[in-house]
Design a protein around this nucleic acid. Sequence first.
DNA 1: TTGAAAGCGCTACCAA
DNA 2: TTGGTAGCGCTTTCAA
Lengths: 349, 349
Amino acid sequence: MSQTPPRPPAGPPAPRPVPTSADVARLAGVSRATVSYVLNDASAVRISEPTRHRVRQAAEELGYVPHAAARSLRAGRTRIVLLPTVPVPVGRLMGHFLNELQWALRRLDYTVVQYASMGLDGDEAARAWAELRPVAVVAFGAAQLTPHGVDVLKRSGARAVITLGPQPVEGAHCLPVDQRRVGRCAGAHLLDRGYRRIGVVLPEEAGLEPLSGPRLDGVRQAVGGAGSGAVADVVPLPLAYTEEAAGALAARWPGLGLDAVFAHNDEYAMLLMRALLDAGVSVPGDTAVMGADDLLLGRLLRPRLSTVRIDMETGRHLAELVDHLVVEPDHAPEPRELMAARAIHRAST
Amino acid sequence: MSQTPPRPPAGPPAPRPVPTSADVARLAGVSRATVSYVLNDASAVRISEPTRHRVRQAAEELGYVPHAAARSLRAGRTRIVLLPTVPVPVGRLMGHFLNELQWALRRLDYTVVQYASMGLDGDEAARAWAELRPVAVVAFGAAQLTPHGVDVLKRSGARAVITLGPQPVEGAHCLPVDQRRVGRCAGAHLLDRGYRRIGVVLPEEAGLEPLSGPRLDGVRQAVGGAGSGAVADVVPLPLAYTEEAAGALAARWPGLGLDAVFAHNDEYAMLLMRALLDAGVSVPGDTAVMGADDLLLGRLLRPRLSTVRIDMETGRHLAELVDHLVVEPDHAPEPRELMAARAIHRAST
DNA sequence: TTGAAAGCGCTACCAA
DNA sequence: TTGGTAGCGCTTTCAA
């Protein structure tokens, strides 16, 4: 039969050419148009059942997989939602949120692609993203994205550019995720309980500055500013994530005269609290210690760690926002804060 | 000047068309070929400096960004390395490894793309990946990838399909990351120290089975199998990651008659150890507790947690392997174990 | 040194 | 109901 595909000898040396819709058409004895109609379930045209079957059969036999690039080139747009990934250790909370988001976007028929952008400066990164012609970009930790970068993306066809972060970026749809809330929450809690000289741990770990800076600012806000109007002192305490660093900090603790410390998150809080206890500083007697993230592990040390619990909006909501902006980029809904924070009092404060 | 680009009134309503290389050519007064030569620094042809300048100028002015899909369609191949992401809480260790890998691949001029595949079964996922025509796929936790999936990918042009995981997948280049090593390490350590009835915590958290199962098997191997030849008993202990579950397990601890427990990782170990201590079970006196991952936090509880330290090959090595396979798919180097594990003895055993 | 044009794989319009 | 075909944006060979 002349329908037999011109298959090469099937040995490993000759790399078989990738089957195209033309190959499927040839094998099924129909035109490429028909193949396209059948495989995309085009409702506008009616194709006879035997033909459909022949086409599917041929596609199956050849192992045909459509070529996304060709398809979107033809269509003039992609369904790619690009999520730039940042090299930050992502906690359970953020991980869960990301999973929800991806799942919901897939349901809406988007192709979710995480793009590793480390080592590219903001505008280089934006260009690299734009090459993929994403229909939407959702950037966490907006630090990377400049107004120019947003412009590049929009000019390349992105209908929605969304940032999640503390400060808005011009041109982008900015969802406030204000880490200062966490600091304010912690600060207010500590003030309530009567503490008046508050240390704030600043992790020296790379990549955490976008979180730690605002959290410090939030504590300052809670005590009424940095100046003379403040009802309490706020002392920044840089700290590396090692036992040695924590021990060194604990050793000079008495000289600092702090009656409380907000330790950025529960991990640092646990590290510091252990060092303080080992150095003979009683918690919360001499100094209160507070974390954030409400890790289960924080409840295992004694005294149990007071913490700031952070709740994120569901990823589904964000997915719907993305879709909305893609469909109707101009009629944008009002930005809404995605993060809620509340203090949880346990034994360490 | 007739060189003025036909820019629409710049109002938001009319979505400006995305500039193409033809637009750049028009604005610069040259052909599209010349634009391509200039922007790609084609060394085969010499373009005069003034022309180059005009072209760059025009591209800049229009905010031109090349269209990756069109480019790779023309080229017949992409430089995409696809990393399927799994919805597993990724620890610091794995996160670091991933970052290294991505960075190294970028240096080799690949486009690293993480593709969210949750909610797709193995072969659906492989098809979805194949649509992007990745030149290589690096799949962690191979559970997803079937021999058929590998075939689909290879037929769609993937030159390298690499899996990292316990068992090889036919057709793929399989790098052993054998979690049983972790279990064997823990088992051997506990045996060495004289323990003979060993519990193994199996997290009930979704997505962890591919790790926990092999770790349990490893412990069994260490004690000499599950049958009569075994020098110690191994008892699986399913456990949810909550204080309640740990408390409940601790409450029935005496009835289990275990003198040691390997708790999958440090987090579960900490959780369980706290519950045991609270229930009056002394550690390591009544029962030894061992974790894995060597988390800093594990050293904060008392007694300090014994653990299995896991080291991963650097991501750069894997990146070079990917590149090697892409360039020369047939002459594949020998697979090498990527993971090393060793027991670290502290106070809890 | 530059331009014209073919063609990558696909979809959708129009004609038969 | 099906086929022919133009053209998405790009690179590259060949010709001028």
